[in-house]
Amino acid sequence: MTDAPTVGFPEGELGPVVRQTVTDFEQWVFVTFHQLSHYVRTNRFYGLLAFVVLIAGLTLAFEVDAGIATVRVQQLFRPSEYLSNYLVYTGLFVVLSAAFFGGDALSVDFSTGTGYYMLVLPIRRPVLLAGRYAAAALVTMAIVGVYYVFGTVGAVYFFGAGSIPWTLLEASYAIAAVFTLAALSVAFCISAFVRSPAAGVLVTVLALYVGFATLQGTIELAGFEPWFSLSYAGGAMAAVLDTDFVHLQTVPLGEDQYYTIWSATVSEGLEIMAGYVAVFLPLSAYLYQRKESTG
């Protein structure tokens, strides 16, 4: 630190400024916090949260209306079965959140003035990406967490707190976190490709929700296991809670005709998700690093 006053500024308004070396990790933490502060104030965050609360609340309301006895019979008297069925929309909410918060996470730097603010700072682009990725993951997990809270409240109401399979529930939430990372990796990659933020969000939703589901169905019809599909891997979130889990189901369609349905095991699902993170996240970083502000 120097005692010499800096020349050229109104006296008393500027003293020597100490600028410390900032590690990439410290910058990552601040970028995550900065991004998180932005995300939780956006209309898309409140909109998605309202959507999740609406779906979760309505589902719960209908079940309460049906009565405890009916729900218990429907769910084979198993709270894990109830949770597995109740949390069936987790994948949808993760995909929507990944699209909303990841679909334009990088393209925003090349289509709006945000890039001229953030990309001229002394921060490496992979650090920026990692901060935004972490913030998007945290927001998504918060939204999914609300859904899980509704599910847990329902399970406690119908089956009692003592019978809740807490470990399995935690495992399901942890798998949802991994699924979130995989979905965000794809979303970030799309975002690094496209220039328009709106296009990034739309393409992410189409790819993750419609594209994978269609592909999975087609491949299953052809009699193959869709082991490469992220939506297939997402089944592990419910599979971990499903006490009657079956990896392979054969459904008769007619005379000598069968339709085979595969469900990902927990380990298989996690492997697929990890594969998506391993491929798409570095690809996103590479594309983001090379992208130019030509606008």
Binding site: R19, Q20, Q27, F30, R41, T42, L121
Partner: peptide, 18 residues
């Protein structure tokens, strides 16, 4: 969504200011 102070704070942090 951020206010002016938060926007400037981000720059200061990126540049290593306490």
């Amino acid at each position: 969504t951020l206010n002016v102070l938060e926007a400037l704070d981000a720059v200061g942090r990126a540049r290593g200011l306490n």
